[in-house]
Amino acid sequence: MAMSFNKIADCEWKLDVCGYTCPHPQMYTKKALQKLESGDVLTLVFDNPSSGESILAMCDAEGNDLIERTENGGSFIWKIRKA
């Protein structure tokens, strides 16, 4: 298990932080979003529920859009479009 951050298509990125507890997921997400250009989409995969609350608040503060969220068996897949 290790963090992975990859470009999966034009303007689309994927960050997988499964297995990590706080504060890794929210801190890696913050850093990943800083790397993206405006309009790029980040697919974020994580399994630490409490990080989701912090990531939601981060998106809210920065104006980033959470465009899709899927939850399955304790894992979360969120798509965030950078403002």
Binding site: C22, P23, Q26, M27, K30, E53, S54, A57, M58, A61
Partner: peptide
């Protein structure tokens, strides 16, 4: 922690 790490005051 989140105040300093990601500037989120939620908790």
């Amino acid at each position: 922690r989140d105040l300093f790490a990601v500037k989120v005051p939620r908790m």
